[in-house]
Design a protein around this nucleic acid. Structure first.
Lengths: 353, 353
DNA sequence: GTGAAAGCGCTAACAG
DNA sequence: CTGTTAGCGCTTTCAC
């Protein structure tokens, strides 16, 4: 059976109180050095590991951070954020209680969120992370059971910490690459804008286009239903038809960009000589795997996870009232090889090979 | 402040013991129905949620399943398994304590595993899941702190439950598709075999090839260093050179298969008319996104997660000694459009477009 | 400096 | 059928 504090105390011939003080680093001038040493020796001989349940009961708070994932796990996005959050938590001696709410189709109703928040409360978590994607807007219960930070999500009109990707700056960055290469006929392939990520990236497109005086034929934008490769492919075919001057296209996500590549390959359109393409997300399975490599903007998953945990722990451990902190992180431009200067002549094959 | 059992008992005018019995469903003939009803009413009026720390302390076991992830979170594979495990756990009123061990490059040394197992012990977890990938062989400490099940990993010579994909049957399945289509000159692009996934899929290739009398020119196999698209691409170029008769290629993973597609696109080789391609994993970001869609075999992440949790809970809750159970699950063939009959003439473009 | 003691909220014997 | 009781292992006052 695992050794308890009492065992350690017995062995070191001190009281449990003294042993507790020493082992939780609160001995500071309250216990003689020699005694402390005896306690530490006894603990290590016994392989003492402590019992978190007992400690949590006593302290009314567990060394646990609840991670409510709103469909994140079902996405390939999750990994880096999870990993970063976990290792950041670990550095501060917290562990992560992972709860996935909602299936791929239903991304966590307010009721489901509220219910799982209560569950986290039962576990006495010291803090809560709510992770979503696409910068979604969440509806949260009025009463949160512990300090909370949102990741890639926000809650308008609410004094709560959150961290989101800087969609606007990121998208502007890749688009400037296109401008720098000299493009004027740029297509925009996007999911129908409904949540912030679509809206902000679209706004960036409009602004960059206006700034550089790009051909503003409304047919340069094609809206699709899903941000996946199949819809990206279909959208590209449509774009080629309705906006034949196009020399470069920006896609809402790397997955859509992959569909754009596929359409180009089938039509014998060379990338980047005949068509420049940029994406968003830096989904390496796609961006790095495509040939030529896709120029895109990284989503700062790792940074968001780390920041969120850092902030959460600050809040947990700080007595005074920190103001709210709502930050945007730019994951940064990832330049690969999918952007080149536009062809001067508009010579382009349109038959399949 | 959250209501305690005592508050409920007070309000229902019963003892805490009775309240406990009722609320944990052990009232069965020990408490009068009317009393039980009163307790339940009081609990719901007070919004009573219980305190897991207290319960864990008393029971010497927390309603927690420790999930030790060995690099899984850093892979896009993770999601489905995590999600399935979590929802299966939830059905039995357990939650998941998630711990990621090891970075992308170091996949959990035995020491790191041992250390984190101890950590889970501190948390009083009722059971442990150790999740890896590629069917890896693990080195585990002699003494496990709780019932344990391995997912997509195994531990040779150890009486422990595990669940792995049926690599051999799966790979044989896709290869039979190739045979059925009439191919005889089939290439095999694989990572250098070191762990079970590579070895078993390669064995399947050898066996199917022998069974159908495929051209056994040793140059039909190209080994690469990594199972990614870049190496798949390079391997395909080499294969075309050293085994020009090739009409179909099987890749160790979908990511490698994507590289194979890229090589074909660049060389003007049409898929599947000129070249049939099959993969493994059913990484939808790739397999579904490629055009034509990639015929491949699914990795049973969801099933493995679910099975593992089911088994673990069986072990936790069963008093008697269950035998060990080590299972293989076949994720199943996913037929898309990357396989066709080989061309009869060997007319193939070899210049780029 | 050190130890005794109270008690966090819950469960499980055991008495009644 | 119901209540009393004794802790689970730990932290934290408070005396000494």
């Amino acid at each position: 059976m695992a050794a308890t504090l009492k065992d350690v105390a017995l062995r070191a011939e001190v009281s449990v109180a003294a042993a507790s003080l020493v082992l939780s680093g609160k001995a500071e001038g309250r216990v003689a050095d020699a005694t402390a040493e005896r306690v530490r020796a006894a603990a290590s001989e016994l392989g003492y590991r402590g019992n978190r349940a007992a400690r949590s009961l006593r302290r009314q708070s567990a060394p646990l951070l609840g991670l409510l994932s709103l469909g994140v796990a079902t996405l390939p996005y999750a990994g880096a954020m999870l990993e970063a959050a976990q290792s950041a938590a670990r550095e501060h001696d917290y562990d992560l209680l992972f709860i996935e709410v909602g299936t791929p189709h239903d991304v966590g109703t307010p009721d489901a969120i509220a219910e799982n928040l209560l569950l986290l409360q039962e576990h006495q978590v010291a803090g809560i992370l709510i992770a979503s994607y696409f910068h979604r807007e969440l509806v949260l219960p009025a009463q949160l059971p512990a300090p909370t930070v949102l990741v890639d999500a926000l809650c308008p009109d609410r004094d709560i910490d959150w961290v989101v990707p800087d969609e606007y700056v990121g998208e502007s960055g890749v688009l400037e690459e296109l401008a720098r290469a000299g493009h004027h006929h740029v297509g925009w392939i996007c999911e129908t804008p409904t949540y912030p990520a679509t809206r902000l990236r679209t706004k960036a497109f409009d602004d960059v286009a206006a700034r550089h005086g790009w051909d503003d034929d409304p047919r340069r934008v094609v809206l699709a239903e899903h941000a996946d490769a199949a819809d990206g492919y279909a959208a590209m075919l449509r774009l080629l038809e309705q906006f034949p001057k196009v020399t470069a296209v920006a896609a809402f996500t790397d997955r859509m960009a992959m569909g754009v590549y596929m359409a180009c390959f089938e039509r014998g359109i060379r990338v980047p000589q005949d068509m420049s393409i940029v994406g968003f997300d830096d989904q390496v399975l796609v961006s790095e795997a495509l040939r030529p490599g896709l120029t895109t903007v990284a989503l700062p998953h790792r940074q968001m996870g780390k920041w969120a945990v850092g902030r959460l722990i600050e809040r947990i451990e700080s007595a005074q009232d920190l103001g709210v902190s709502q930050v945007h992180i730019n994951g940064g431009l990832v330049v690969r090889d999918s952007v080149a200067a536009p062809r001067t002549g508009r010579i382009r094959a349109s038959a399949r090979r």
